[in-house]
Design a protein around this nucleic acid. Structure first.
Length: 448
RNA sequence: GCGGCUAUAGUUCAGUGGCAGAACGCCGCUCUGUGGCAGCGGAUGUCGUGGGUUCGAAACCCACUAGCCGCCCCA
């Protein structure tokens, strides 16, 4: 029989790696709670239109990287092959619905915000999520077709203060704290403002105008970008074009008074909090919904991520709710690439000494007649909060010792003598010592 | 989606046309209630998949699949 393998770009997470995932998520949840965030869980698939409108029809994500499908029932229905009256199926004129596995989660969160009329509550909504996202890209280290994001969104009606630069600074300060708490070393925060929904078109027009006469001097990649997505020319890494790029108009010069003041306040608040950042006028974001503040946390080369050195990114999206047919609800959010975060932490941990994780005790029954007694003892000790593995009475004692030494800090022998005398032999592997302990004293002895 | 590199034991890898290998790990014995150390022994396997060249292919060629690196883009 041919073996069935995981599909390209997906992966299985096994112990002990999952332990690190859980640690990251637990740390994150605890921290988010301190900042007043509540968890939201949105569906893993949504109406395709949500991403087309929210993320942007012209973005790479929507135009070529989405997992889009139409359920077989809907296909049959739209093809008129389903009669409709049998089995209570929907009538044939019901339109086939195009669905898409979410390529990111902000659109889904804002959709839920609109759908549940959270704007009418009137207060700021602070929501976080942890879950898988899907993009059909060429897989690489730190870049998978099913990847996990930890994200959060702060949004609310204009009067809730959702638009305040304080929110931007709070989110950024929280992220800096999170990376520190997780033990990520050497991170860098890049910060920019890409202007309001009115600033951006003005700047874009000026950028196109500046690009037009020099376009033919650019490398082919950047010529194409100049056409399709001029903003991306700005963060091109190609050294051959740097001189030309330097001379292009700068977004900072096109911010209106409000946007400039907003950005200045964000930076002032960050400085007050002691969060280091780099003003990066080249930092643009790929998704259509971003306005004003945009940011990215990266780690240095050689930190285990290859060229995928962005750990997380985000920004403000003051017009997204309206783009999705909702009320005015400015907001700011971010998404952490959890896979990348884990890779970075693993790469760091490799440079340090790995910590062995062992169970409290291994219980070794002597002979199959002691199996039940061993299991009962394990049950008691586990109930007392200890982590326990049980051996197998058919195995020779030597084998029990070998197995126990690999798995646990201590071993308890359960043989006829022990059960009869109520004195159990406990071996402490680290100390190489052995002692006899009564049943009532066992839990205590195994904790030391 | 484009370009490049790679795929051999559980793991890390050697093997450039002629018997499928090493280290570590695993199992057994020395050792029937005392592990770690040591000695001896054992199994490691569709050589990624399919086709082709050849007397003969793990090796050469082609395709496919997957991983990695770079690009595009992005978390």
């Amino acid at each position: 029989m041919a073996v069935i393998l995981k599909v390209r770009g997906t992966r299985d997470l096994l112990p002990p790696e999952t332990e690190l995932w859980n640690r990251v998520e637990a740390t994150t949840r605890a921290l988010f709670a301190r900042y007043g965030f509540g968890e939201i869980r949105t569906p893993i698939f949504e109406d395709t239109q949500l991403f087309a409108r929210g993320v942007g029809e012209e973005t790479d994500i929507v135009s070529k990287e989405m997992y889009t499908f139409t359920p077989a029932d809907d296909v049959g229905r739209s093809a008129g092959r389903v009669t409709g009256e049998s089995a209570g199926l929907p009538s044939r004129d019901e339109k086939a619905q195009s669905l898409t596995l979410r390529p990111e989660n902000t659109a889904g969160v804002v959709r839920a915000y609109i759908e549940h009329k959270l704007n009418d509550i009137g207060t700021l909504q602070k929501l976080f999520y942890i879950g898988p996202q899907f993009r059909r890209e060429r897989p690489q280290r730190g870049r998978y077709r099913q990847f996990w994001q930890i994200g959060a969104e702060v949004l609310g009606p204009a009067w809730s203060g959702a638009e305040s630069p304080l929110r931007d600074a709070e989110v950024l300060e929280m992220l800096a704290t999170l990376l520190d708490e997780l033990g990520v070393r050497g991170w860098q925060l890049d910060l920019n403002s890409i202007g309001s929904t009115t600033d951006r078109p003005r700047y874009l027009a000026a950028l196109r105008a500046a690009l037009a006469p020099i376009k033919h001097q650019l490398t082919p990649d950047n010529q194409r970008r100049a056409e399709t997505n001029p903003l991306r020319v700005l963060d091109s890494k190609d050294p051959r074009d740097q001189a030309l790029i330097e001379a292009l108009p700068c977004i900072a010069d096109f911010l209106d008074e409000d946007s400039r003041s907003h950005f200045d306040q964000v930076k002032a608040a960050l400085t007050a909090c002691g969060v280091p950042f780099r003003d990066n006028p080249r930092l643009v974001r790929g998704l259509d919904y971003y306005t004003r503040t945009t940011f990215e946390f990266t780690i240095p080369d050689g930190s285990g991520l290859g060229t995928q050195n962005a750990l997380l990114g985000g920004g403000r999206y003051d017009g997204l709710s309206e783009m999705l047919g909702g009320p005015k609800a400015p907001g700011i959010g971010f998404a952490i690439g959890e896979d990348r975060l884990i890779l970075a932490l693993e790469a760091q941990a490799e440079q340090e000494s790995p910590v062995e994780r062992k169970l409290d005790a291994f219980i070794a029954p002597m002979g199959i007649s002691q199996n039940s007694a061993a299991l009962v003892l394990a049950r008691e000790l586990r109930a007392a909060g200890l982590s326990i593995e049980v051996g197998e009475g058919a195995f020779r004692l030597k084998r029990s010792f070998e197995t126990a030494d690999k798995l646990a800090h201590r071993m308890v022998i359960v043989g006829e003598d022990e059960v009869a005398s109520d004195l159990f032999t406990v071996k402490h592997f680290s100390r190489g010592e052995q002692e006899k302990v009564t049943r009532v004293g066992l839990a205590e002895a195994l904790r030391r």
